[in-house]
Design a binder for these strands. Structure first.
Length: 306
DNA sequence: TAGATTTGACCCCG
DNA sequence: CGGGGTCAAATCTA
């Protein structure tokens, strides 16, 4: 990750982390509030607090500390994981025999994948069919394997992996999407996690081939050129397909981001991009408060996980 | 009864 | 050699 020389003073970093943690707690409260009472005036104060909290955190961490903070947050979340909660696989295992060799196909995650951190891993506009669950050594929670319901009838190759990361209310999940949908049914999938929550920032993580970053870059460019406030699924897919062949790490044009923000500087204050050579910094931190004008939905996309 | 989920077995890859 | 990803029979559910 970031080198030691990039670190900010510990006090600043701790303060920033506390702010982010507080922001997340407020966001969780807001989320539960919104689920029972959608009146805006009721939650407006909370929303403002969340926004300010994250903005303060980002300003403390910029320009080099965001990745470190996220990593630290992740480790804090690991620490807060409830002990003894092992999901459903810990008890009563049945013995069954299988006469044939199985699990022969693609064994390792393909490059065309991206990861999100969300409290609602099951509602992304597509129909999924669970085909497996595994206890993962490095996690206290089992990992669930899903593929598109239309895999058989339409040959849709899309799949996703869902893994719970904590016991919070609501619990957060790491969702890794693999490959694009080829099916026609259902709502547009978040080929990019464009459905950021208005109450939480979202962080995107991508495969090692930079294709995900290219998606974002291209996506933002398309916004910039069209001036439209809504991203169509076909636009996203087309853009991705057009750029996915290149292997060159892209650069994120911050002037593009800036021009996207009708309010001026808030967008840049809410976004950070760290194209370092190591994997951890290949992600994009977005503040949905400031991205809301771009037509992001109101799902519960949240922090990135690597 | 059809479709979805559960779960142990299997096997490739690092 | 072990972990992770997948398969498919058994089971569940609407």
């Amino acid at each position: 990750m970031a080198s030691p020389s990039m670190k900010k003073p510990t006090s600043d970093r701790e303060a920033a982390i506390q702010e982010v943690v507080r922001g997340r707690e407020l966001a969780a409260r807001l989320h539960s509030l919104l689920s029972v009472d959608p009146r805006r005036e009721l939650v407006h104060g909370l929303m403002e607090e969340v926004s300010q909290s994250f903005t303060r955190a980002l300003s403390l961490l910029k320009p080099t500390g965001i990745s470190e903070a996220i990593q630290e947050l992740a480790s804090m979340e690991e620490d807060s994981v409830c002990s003894g909660n092992q999901g459903s696989e810990a008890s009563g295992e049945k013995v069954r025999t299988s006469p044939h060799a199985k699990g022969v196909h693609s064994r390792r995650r393909p490059l065309q994948s991206w990861t999100i951190f969300t409290s609602t891993p099951h509602h992304d506009g597509h129909e999924w069919r669970k085909y497996g669950q595994k206890k993962i050594l490095s996690s206290d929670f089992p990992r669930s394997y899903y593929r598109c319901t239309h895999r058989d009838d339409q040959g849709c190759p899309a799949a996703k992996l869902v893994q719970q990361k904590d016991c919070n209310d609501p619990p957060m999940y790491v969702v890794t999407y693999i490959r694009h949908h080829a099916c026609k049914k259902g709502l547009p999938t978040p080929q990019l996690p464009v459905n950021c929550s208005p109450s939480e920032p979202c962080m995107l993580s991508f495969g090692s081939d930079w294709s995900g970053i290219k998606q974002v870059q291209s996506l933002l460019s398309s916004f910039n050129s069209t001036g439209e406030g809504h991203m169509g699924d076909d636009v996203i897919s087309a853009k991705f397909d057009a750029i996915s062949s290149s292997n060159d790490p892209p650069s994120l044009d911050l002037t593009t981001l800036e021009s996207l923000d009708p309010a001026g500087d808030d967008m840049l204050s809410g976004m950070s991009f760290s194209p370092n050579s190591d994997g951890f910094d290949k992600h994009l931190l977005m503040d949905p408060w400031n991205l809301g004008g771009l037509g992001f939905g109101d799902d519960s996309w949240s922090f990135l996980e690597v």
